[in-house]
Design a protein around this nucleic acid. Sequence first.
DNA 1: CCAAAAGTGTTCAAAGTACACCCATGA
DNA 2: TCATGGGTGTACTTTGAACACTTTTGG
Lengths: 226, 226
Amino acid sequence: MRGNLFAVAVDLVVLTVRSGALHVLLVRRTAPPFAGSPALPGGFVRPHEDLLDAATRELAEESGVPVPGHHLEQLASYAAPGRDPRGRVLTVGHLALVPDLPLPAAGPEAGSWHAVAGRATAEPLAFDHDRILADGVERARAKLEYTTLAASFCPPELTVAQLRGVYEAVWGRPLDPRNFQRKVTSTDGFLVPTGRTVSGARGRPAQLFRRGPATALHPPMLRGES
Amino acid sequence: MRGNLFAVAVDLVVLTVRSGALHVLLVRRTAPPFAGSPALPGGFVRPHEDLLDAATRELAEESGVPVPGHHLEQLASYAAPGRDPRGRVLTVGHLALVPDLPLPAAGPEAGSWHAVAGRATAEPLAFDHDRILADGVERARAKLEYTTLAASFCPPELTVAQLRGVYEAVWGRPLDPRNFQRKVTSTDGFLVPTGRTVSGARGRPAQLFRRGPATALHPPMLRGES
DNA sequence: CCAAAAGTGTTCAAAGTACACCCATGA
DNA sequence: TCATGGGTGTACTTTGAACACTTTTGG
């Protein structure tokens, strides 16, 4: 073995869609370094813990998100020398996609939702978290194309319009409601009808669906040029 | 900071195409643990080194691959408790795609090429390297679809047939030579003609191309059902 | 009745598939 | 000249894009 050891942390890019826009869960740091700065939620990996377990634990602690209905995957690792002034710290970024749930107790260390769109002009995040956030958003955008993960942003029962809202928020571009409807309802195993409908503010009531067993999208959902 | 520290390594999934089949570079371990087992090349990250720098260094040491003409990217991190009997070791898997170069000096620690196809029935790799290899191969297969990375498996000057051989080897499926030709030559920036031709064993001489500046493939190369 | 959202049908263009066919070389 | 692989042309099919149109609600 060698003497050059690292502390290992997990950081979370927790994304949701609320009010038609993509939001990320941020906490405010209370201790140095970067005290007072916004940051991605995260923490150190415990002695006998695997990476995904650590990320799951942090997700539950920070956002109150229990197990079902969310998606969590590893993103990438970041270990540039000097990224943490305390010493050599490697962090494994993770990406979580969750429905727009109310956050738990708004204590001083609680997280809150921030629109992703205006991040460029907002207060920079601690460490290299801006980079991790950018990678997470990019990954989410790409995965909507060829997976059914968009449904992870929605509650267990959802309408086609809600799902379309997710795509439009994440991609920042309007989609044709007619073609979108046909696409998702004709993709086998994406949405399964419940038989019930729900009345929105105005207009014809929409069918309620549950998420189907499909995870991949063949053919993919397209977002035009990019 | 915390007391639970990790050793951090990089491991390399170095892939090439030779004799029409996908091959991976493996070394044989000489020291415990897993002495005598085949393993992915890799090593510990040095005190002031970033992850990609460590992977680049290991790639140069193990395969003699100098800088240009290869592709190297981070794959994922693996840190399951107990994956290394010596203690807590996190490894960051990397994926390298290289042309079929002759390997350097075949010393006792030198690497050698092994066909990926028969790995399931072959001697298992050390640690969790079978899993890392599987992830690397899967990533390579996926990336050929929507990037121009297949050219990374070829020498700087290449023919359309060579490039097609890469796709067929990685995907394990024949492609129509006529449609493939049209697809790659009509994708802007994928291949740029040199004007020269090369005479193969038999048949009409093929045009020589160089890699173009394009990195993405719109629309993607399709591999049918999967 | 009217506005608005859900959902269907139809037309057109772009891209993949299949394959007939010609070209240029070595044996 | 023939076999072989390189390269082009073309018909057919599938899929996405655009949009007219019908359905069903609330005001």
